[in-house]
Design a protein around this nucleic acid. Structure first.
Length: 219
DNA sequence: CACATGATCGCCT
DNA sequence: GGCGATCATGTGG
């Protein structure tokens, strides 16, 4: 029994066309995972529900590099029913259930068969929204009403879940190791977490963590 | 502010 | 059987 998607928080209602937002092309998501993770800072993650758009501006992401990345669910080529969406073409959604109570959403990257993804860790709602509402991967899913029932959906054509390109100028981007992957050996310290330096909605108080050695190529 | 802990269960070993 | 890509709450400084 899969928990159904829930209604999004009404405070997240917005109008993509009023903001002049445009969608991505498939090729963008097939590209380098680290670049996609950086580029998604400032993008809007949106859901069309009951005739209205709900969404938030992404302010924190993490890159997961697949077969060579001990922190990734697809590490070593692991391929189970849960992880299967990570093997799809770039631009699909991968949602997983953690700690018996939370959901986390990822944007799948690279071409079909290469299981890499970008975890959406935090976002800012429309003006006036409390900064903590979407500050953390599970809160982000809860606020938008996303569950594992949406895992595997296509973010480009299928319909109710979409990504829109950033329109404002490039944000100042901070980099640190990823959160909550201390078990992952040397991958633990890879600098693969990206966040908007000027956003109050970035999760935790972990901006200052030391960065490890350079990230490996995600290609 | 900085930890520490409990909740709660699917997934993998 | 153990643990996790988390969060809210509680304690102490």
């Amino acid at each position: 029994m899969e928990r159904e998607a829930a209604a999004p928080d009404p405070r997240l209602r917005f109008a993509p066309e009023a903001l002049g937002l445009r969608e991505y092309r498939r090729a963008f998501f097939r590209g380098d995972t680290i670049k996609v993770a950086r580029s998604l800072i400032g993008a809007w993650f949106a859901r069309f529900y009951d005739g209205e758009w709900y969404g938030a501006r992404i302010v924190e992401t993490e890159a997961y590099l697949g077969i060579t990345d001990a922190a990734a669910h697809s590490y070593g080529g692991r391929r189970t029913a849960r992880v299967e969406p990570m093997y799809r073409d770039g631009g699909h959604l991968y949602v997983f259930f953690v700690y018996g109570m939370h959901y986390c959403a990822n944007v799948v990257t690279r071409p079909e068969g290469i299981a890499q993804a970008v975890l959406l860790r935090a976002a800012e709602g429309p003006p006036g929204t409390p900064p903590r509402l979407l500050s953390g991967p599970a809160r982000l899913c809860a606020a938008l009403g996303i569950t594992a029932a949406s895992s595997g959906e296509d973010l480009l054509v299928s319909g109710d879940l979409r990504l829109f390109r950033r329109r404002a100028r490039r944000p100042r981007i901070g980099v640190t190791p990823r959160i909550g992957v201390d078990y992952a050996g040397e991958a633990r310290d890879w600098p693969l977490r990206f966040f908007d330096e000027d956003s109050p909605a970035v999760s935790g108080s972990v901006r200052l963590r030391a960065t490890g050695p350079a990230a490996p190529s995600s290609a």
